[in-house]
């Protein structure tokens, strides 16, 4: 099994079909791309043809939405086989999905559903991650999702749950800065508690994204530019974790490539400032 910690890739973007042409003709200053696995788990045609070209030019990571790692339904071996086939084609630096479930009883709700943070759920997830890692022959990377509910039966905080999964299943973490911000707002916990609660050596990727405010809660819609509060939290995350491969995640209202590249440059600038400060402090 591939177990060494993946490299720092720099600053990347989610690959979106709206940007295919510009990427292939313009070679934008993007260090790497994250591809949505399900979009390429298809038979053939243009999407895979373009993916092959982008894989030749950029490092790639794969990001899925339907592994349903926390589901109590049996593992979907067909899905894992197709995912592995795609991984053989793409040769990704890592494969990620979300620490959530998407359905039971053969139904897929196409949503990232919340988990009660119990010892029982933890044992279940840890066991599933180990099995999936065996099938894929590599460590999995799991992302914290944003949630809108908390459950009476929860026995620990989200960050304790996430950390325990990572440590016990020996997997990597994708730290979604926006999701932590959204969940902290909705559930009234401190983003700093979450940050401090996550083991430094487990985090291999950041997601930075926008969201929308609806009345008294925030929905993680990924359809807005990144807001100042999330940028501030990103700065804290970089300070805490050090250099971590960072990506702007935009799923809806997709703007021209230049606009997301500009957001990515902003992330680069923040990370640069943090690194500079760290050097100065070290030199003192």
């Amino acid at each position: 099994m591939k177990t060494e910690k993946p490299p720092f890739l720099g600053f990347g973007l989610g690959l979106r079909p709206q940007h295919y042409e510009e990427i292939l003709s313009g070679s934008p200053t993007v260090d790497w791309f994250e591809v949505l696995s399900e979009n390429y788990m298809i038979a053939g045609g243009q999407p895979l043809h373009i993916l092959d070209q982008i894989c030749e030019r950029y490092p790639i990571v794969m990001h899925g939405v339907s592994m349903s790692i926390a589901s109590t339904a049996p593992l979907d071996m067909d899905y894992l086989r197709d995912l592995k086939t795609l991984a053989e084609r793409v040769n990704p630096k890592w494969i990620s999905d979300h620490l959530c479930w998407t359905g039971v009883h053969g139904v897929n709700l196409h949503d990232l559903l919340p988990i009660p943070y119990t010892e029982e759920a933890l044992n279940h997830v840890v066991d599933r991650v180990s099995k999936v890692q065996d099938v894929l022959g590599r460590r999995l990377t799991l992302e914290n999702v944003s949630s809108y509910v908390t459950f009476g039966q929860s026995e620990m905080s989200e960050w304790e749950f996430v950390s325990e999964v990572a440590n016990r299943a020996d997997c990597w973490l994708l730290f979604d800065v926006n999701n932590v911000y959204v969940s902290a707002f909705n559930h009234g916990f401190s983003t700093d508690d979450f940050l401090q609660g996550i083991p430094r050596d487990r985090v291999v990727q950041f997601h930075v994204a926008g969201h929308s405010h609806e009345d008294d809660h925030i929905v993680d819609t990924h359809d807005h530019p990144v807001c100042d509060e999330v940028w501030d939290f990103y700065r804290e995350a970089v300070t805490h974790f050090g250099p971590v491969s960072t990506m702007i995640e935009r799923d809806d209202n997709i703007p021209p490539l230049a606009e997301v590249v500009a957001e990515l440059d902003h992330a680069r600038k923040i990370a640069g400032e943090v690194a500079e400060r760290a050097q100065l402090t070290a030199a003192e």
Partner: peptide, 21 residues
């Protein structure tokens, strides 16, 4: 199983998932 948040009732919160689906 769901708790009310400080600002929203549990049915509004589950409603977020119902609507999103």
């Amino acid at each position: 199983d769901v708790k009310d948040s400080t600002t929203e009732s549990r049915s509004v919160l589950i409603g977020v998932y119902r609507h999103a689906y």
